[in-house]
Amino acid sequence: MQAICVIDDDVLIRIGLEMALKKEGFDVRAFSSGCEFLEEGDFSEIGCIVTDIEMPGGVTGLDLLAETRKTAPDCPVVVMTGKGEGAFRSAALALGARAYIEKPASPRKILDAIAGAMRPAVLAA
């Protein structure tokens, strides 16, 4: 089973989402920063990335999204932020985010976004 990677510097959000995903039967890898995630280096067994936008350590969620597009272009990414709509949303979607969620969000809303992001794209005829 491919893992869901949760990347968020807020420990309560990270652990809460990790627990909700595990309860749904997902294999979960949790990281406190984009740097920590990128240091892992193995993108082969990732089914979806769920990342915050603003994190410490010099790698934002947008940086992580751009790097993921280079190293694992087919890996779906769900972006979460407390910053709302606007430039962050536009940038995330332009970089290929499959979903953009404003915090606070219910675990169900995030789980639904992950399910939608992992669904294969339907090609138009």
Rank of each mutant, 00 (worst) to 15 (best):
M1G: 13
M1N: 10
M1C: 07
Q2P: 07
Q2V: 07
A3Q: 15
A3P: 09
C5E: 04
I7F: 06
I7A: 01
D8G: 06
D8I: 02
D8S: 04
D8M: 04
D9C: 09
D10Y: 00
V11Q: 09
I13A: 02
I15T: 14
G16T: 07
G16K: 05
L17Y: 01
E18S: 11
E18Y: 03
M19G: 08
M19T: 14
A20D: 12
L21N: 02
L21K: 11
K22Q: 15
E24C: 11
E24T: 07
E24G: 04
G25S: 02
V28D: 05
V28H: 08
R29A: 05
A30P: 00
F31P: 00
S32M: 14
S32Y: 10
S32C: 11
S33H: 09
C35W: 10
C35S: 15
E36L: 13
E36W: 13
F37W: 06
F37N: 01
F37A: 02
F37I: 02
L38S: 06
E39A: 15
E40V: 11
G41Y: 08
G41L: 08
D42F: 08
S44G: 15
I46H: 00
G47V: 08
G47M: 05
I49A: 00
T51C: 10
D52C: 11
E54C: 02
M55D: 05
M55N: 02
M55H: 02
P56K: 08
G57H: 01
V59Q: 01
V59E: 02
D63L: 13
L64D: 13
L64P: 03
L64I: 14
A66H: 01
E67W: 04
K70L: 05
K70F: 01
T71Q: 00
A72K: 06
P73N: 04
D74H: 12
C75T: 15
C75W: 03
V77K: 00
V78D: 07
V78Q: 07
V78H: 12
T81W: 02
T81K: 02
G82W: 03
G82S: 11
K83R: 14
G84S: 04
E85T: 13
E85G: 07
G86I: 14
G86N: 10
A87Y: 03
A87D: 11
A87K: 10
A87V: 15
F88L: 04
F88M: 05
S90N: 11
S90P: 00
A91W: 01
A91C: 14
A91M: 11
A91V: 09
A92N: 12
A92K: 08
L93C: 10
L95C: 07
G96I: 13
A97R: 01
A99R: 04
A99P: 01
A99W: 08
Y100I: 09
Y100T: 10
Y100H: 14
I101A: 04
I101C: 05
I101F: 06
E102A: 13
E102N: 12
P104C: 09
A105Q: 03
S106Q: 12
S106N: 08
R108M: 11
R108S: 08
R108C: 11
R108Y: 06
I110M: 14
L111Q: 03
L111E: 02
D112V: 09
D112E: 15
D112P: 03
I114N: 01
A115L: 09
A117E: 09
M118C: 13
M118Q: 12
R119L: 00
R119K: 06
P120Y: 06
A121V: 15
A121D: 10
L123T: 07
L123M: 01
L123N: 10
A124I: 14
A125S: 12
